[in-house]
């Protein structure tokens, strides 16, 4: 579905990503992992054309650069890490914006309107935000806000979902909810997920495939359990990762 070939990103003299290639097929959940500053989020931004890059990013064989923003948004949705909304939009207004790519401007017909409404209702129901639809997003907790934006991206009906550390600042309960919802979403045919995660346990639990980045280069890629091997992680993180993980978890044994 998505193919990234020789992706390089530079900010002035600084090389953020260097010849990174990976691909994602339908039904896969690709985890992009690596230490801080490895270029994980930049890779996602390149896919949504948020940074200028060299190399090729193909979506179903089409170059992403050639797609119109609305065409891109109909296929690729993004759930970002932080949301700061300055004005008191209602939950429903934010979710409805997810339909932007389907009817920009005033020239949308009745049929389209109905489709939009169905998609918004479905997304609200799926994320459990329907009861809060008329609430101002300024009054929501971080976990609720993240679910609002998850509903927005569901309403967008993409085939490829990009997640940029979606649960980084959230309580465990919300982490579980968000990952649960995305797992269910992925069960439908013709869909794929690419996510940047910090938490290696999450990557191991939910990822089918993984790309391990270190200082802008790709160290390993392939099936998640192979990429997340002790040898790979120890080299990149410069510590005995699995020993540390086991030590952390052993505290919970009673």
């Amino acid at each position: 579905m998505l193919e990234v070939k020789n992706l390089s990103v530079r900010y002035g003299d600084l090389t953020i990503l260097k010849n990174v290639s990976f691909s994602v097929r339908e039904g896969q959940w690709l985890m992009i992992i690596g230490p801080n500053g490895a270029g994980k989020s930049t890779a996602l931004n390149a896919i949504t054309q948020g940074v200028s890059y060299t190399g090729e990013i193909l979506l179903k064989g089409c170059s992403m650069e050639q797609l119109k923003p609305t065409e891109r948004a109909r296929m690729v949705g993004v759930l970002a890490q932080n949301h700061y909304v300055g004005y008191s939009f209602t939950v429903e207004e934010v979710v409805r914006l997810g339909r932007y790519a389907y009817s920009p401007g005033f020239l949308s017909g009745r049929q389209k309107e109905k489709e939009d409404k169905t998609a918004v209702e479905h997304a609200l129901a799926l994320t459990g935000m329907a009861p809060l639809r008329t609430k101002s997003v300024l009054t929501l907790s971080g976990g609720e806000l993240q679910r609002v934006f998850l509903a927005q991206v569901f309403a967008q009906e993409p085939q490829l979902l990009l997640l940029d550390e979606p649960t980084n600042h959230l309580d465990l309960i919300y982490q579980k909810q968000v990952f649960g919802l995305i797992t269910d979403w992925l069960k439908n045919p013709g869909r794929a997920v690419v996510s940047v995660v910090h938490d290696l346990s999450l990557a191991k639990a939910f990822g089918t495939h993984a790309v391990l980045l270190d200082q802008g280069t790709c160290v390993a890629k392939g099936e998640a359990k192979e990429v997340l091997s002790a040898a790979n992680l120890n080299e990149v993180y410069r510590m005995d990762v699995s020993a540390w993980m086991r030590q952390m978890l052993s505290q919970w044994e009673e």
């Binding site: 949504t48 948020g50 923003p69 609305t70 948004a73 993004v78 970002a80 004005y87 914006l97 790519a101």
Partner: peptide, 22 residues
């Protein structure tokens, strides 16, 4: 005519790009 785009921008510029605003 650009009210929807303005809504998107006032939620966030990145969000605007993600939902397909040029």
């Amino acid at each position: 005519f650009h009210a929807r785009e303005l809504n998107a921008f006032s939620i966030g510029e990145d969000n605007a790009r993600h939902i397909g605003v040029n």
